[in-house]
């Protein structure tokens, strides 16, 4: 579904990602781990096409389209979706209004999904204005449910979510990447940044990647990587010479 080749990305004139190579096939869910500032969010933003994450070398091939220099909304329309870690507030724009636009006016689906995500009382509120951390995540998941992306990118979906809502968010995300389907029937793919690994309780991710200083340090079983990070921390990864 997505092939990242020799990708180099600059943020404010400084190279943040160096020589990234990654292939995500249809139906696969990948987990991205790494210390703060290692470039995980920059990679997701570069895949989405944000101006601040400027691709200087390499290419992004999505469903056989070269999207390296395609505008954000065309990537979204091709099926790439992003759950923002810290989305901006848009004053005056109601959450319900945005959902109406992205759903093509399917108010029945909006109401159903909003109720499911406990967000039905937020539809008439300015998007993200005064939302708590958990409310932001539920609003983001709700937006993705309406958007129905084929490549689901999630930037720390569990941060700020309280225990009560964690299973709600976790299960909704699992449905987004079709974990409720048999392996052979899965068409959706995922790329998920996680620090805590809580999301792995709801999603059996297929591959794990560790990023340090803007490049991949290792790839492997997500559970194994998480266990190692939990016991020894990322300093072990930084010290680790094998790339």
């Amino acid at each position: 579904m997505l092939i990242i080749e020799d990708l180099h990305v600059e943020v404010e004139g400084r190279e943040v990602l160096h020589d990234i190579n990654l292939t995500i096939n249809e139906g696969e869910t990948h987990v991205l781990m790494g210390p703060n500032g290692s470039g995980k969010t920059t990679l997701l933003r570069a895949i989405m096409g944000f101006g601040s994450s400027r691709i200087t070398e390499g290419s992004l091939i999505y469903k056989d389209h070269d999207i390296t220099h395609v505008p954000i909304h065309e990537r979204a329309r091709l099926g790439i979706g992003l759950l923002f870690q810290r989305p901006p507030t848009v004053s005056g724009l109601k959450l319900g209004k945005l959902l109406a636009v992205t759903s093509g006016g399917d108010s029945e689906r909006i109401d159903e999904y909003a109720r499911h995500m406990n967000m039905d009382t937020f539809l008439e509120r300015d998007i993200n204005k005064g939302f708590s951390g958990g409310e932001i995540k539920r609003s983001e998941v709700l937006q993705l449910m309406i958007q129905k992306p084929d490549l689901v990118m999630l930037d720390e979906p569990e941060s700020g979510v309280d225990l009560e809502n964690m299973s709600l968010v976790g299960n909704a995300i699992a449905a987004l990447v079709e974990k409720d389907q048999h392996i052979i029937n899965r068409k959706k793919s995922g790329l998920i940044i996680t620090h805590t690994g809580y999301i792995l309780d709801y999603i059996d991710a297929d591959f794990g990647h560790v990023m340090c200083d803007g490049t991949f340090k290792c790839h492997g079983n997500p559970r194994e990587i998480l266990k190692m990070v939990q016991s020894k921390g990322y300093k072990e990864c930084i010290a680790c010479q094998r790339v």
Binding site: M48, F50, G51, S52, P71, I72, H73, A76, R77, G81, L82, F84, P87, P88, V90, S91, G92, L93, K97, L98, V101, T102, D126, Q143, Q147
Partner: peptide
């Protein structure tokens, strides 16, 4: 810019995103 890009990530073109933000 981040507001425009946020809406573009939901599939709105730059012009649509701009008009939506102004309306808000």
């Amino acid at each position: 810019r981040d507001e425009i890009e946020y809406l573009m990530a939901r599939g709105l073109s730059e012009d649509e995103a701009t008009a939506t933000i102004i309306r808000g």
